[in-house]
């Protein structure tokens, strides 16, 4: 029996060695992927230096894509998404967006909305213009985000099914790995979108 246990330990050591080699060569040398540390920073220090921390998190944001004139959001007083979205609550270092904030940005079309739910939920219904980045295949679909986010500072709002939704947190953490610095979580997610009835025109159904 000792011989078998010894062999099993040897296999374990070989696996660790193979893993270490794969990580330092294949995984970390593949272009397009962020560095893969053995131990991650739970909340990178850079998070607190992002525009998210300011009283007015939108001030460093890109201009709205659909702005009708040069003054639009900067002077829009009550209607400004910047004033509606206060970063009062944080989860894992990410600002939490409330329903009004999401609605304002949907109307202004000045933020990228990311749907972190799985395929079957996405196929059923989603927010118009949202980018699909399911939590179970984030890295496979990260190019969907890269293709539409103009700058790393652009506002990204991630939503999922609602409740204790890990999906949106997972997606937001990966986006931070890819150095997107203005990622917000819409924690209430789809539960609130459906229950509130306020998203009528912004919801589309089916494939």
């Amino acid at each position: 029996m000792k011989r078998h246990i010894g062999l099993a330990i040897l296999i374990l050591i070989a696996s660790c060695g193979a893993g270490a080699i794969a990580r330092s060569t294949w995984y970390n040398k593949t272009p397009g992927y962020p560095h893969m540390p053995w131990v991650k920073d739970a909340v990178p220090a850079t998070t607190d230096k992002t525009p998210n921390t300011s009283k007015d998190p939108q001030k460093d944001m890109d201009p709205p894509a659909s702005g009708t004139n040069g003054q639009s959001h900067a002077v829009a007083s009550k209607e400004s998404p910047a004033e509606v979205c206060g970063c009062e609550k944080r989860i894992e270092g990410f600002c939490v967006a409330e329903i009004d904030c999401v609605l304002k940005h949907l109307a202004a079309k000045d933020a990228i909305i990311v749907d972190a739910r799985e395929d079957h939920d996405w196929d059923e219904s989603r927010l118009i213009g949202a980018v699909h980045l399911p939590s179970s295949a984030i890295y496979e679909n990260i190019n969907n985000i890269m293709a539409v986010v103009p700058t790393p500072q652009h506002m990204i709002i991630v939503y999922c099914g609602g409740g204790q939704c890990e999906a949106s947190k997972n997606v937001a953490i990966v986006l931070r790995e890819f150095e997107y610095t203005n990622v917000w979580l819409y924690e209430q997610g789809w539960e609130e979108i459906e229950a509130s009835g306020r998203f009528g025109d912004y919801v589309e159904s089916g494939d």
């Binding site: 794969a22 990580r23 294949w26 995984y27 970390n28 593949t30 992927y33 893969m36 540390p37 053995w38 131990v39 991650k40 920073d41 739970a42 939590s135 179970s136 295949a137 984030i138 890295y139 496979e140 890990e166 997972n170 953490i173 990966v174």
Partner: peptide, 26 residues
């Protein structure tokens, strides 16, 4: 196995809430 797959697997491991999030890459 692979650069994308291993990172995704770290996310899946983190979901189990057994290991601290910082140690899921190992």
């Amino acid at each position: 196995l692979g650069p994308a797959e291993s990172r995704q697997f770290a996310v899946e491991i983190g979901n189990y809430k057994i290991l601290p999030a910082a140690y899921t890459n190992i």
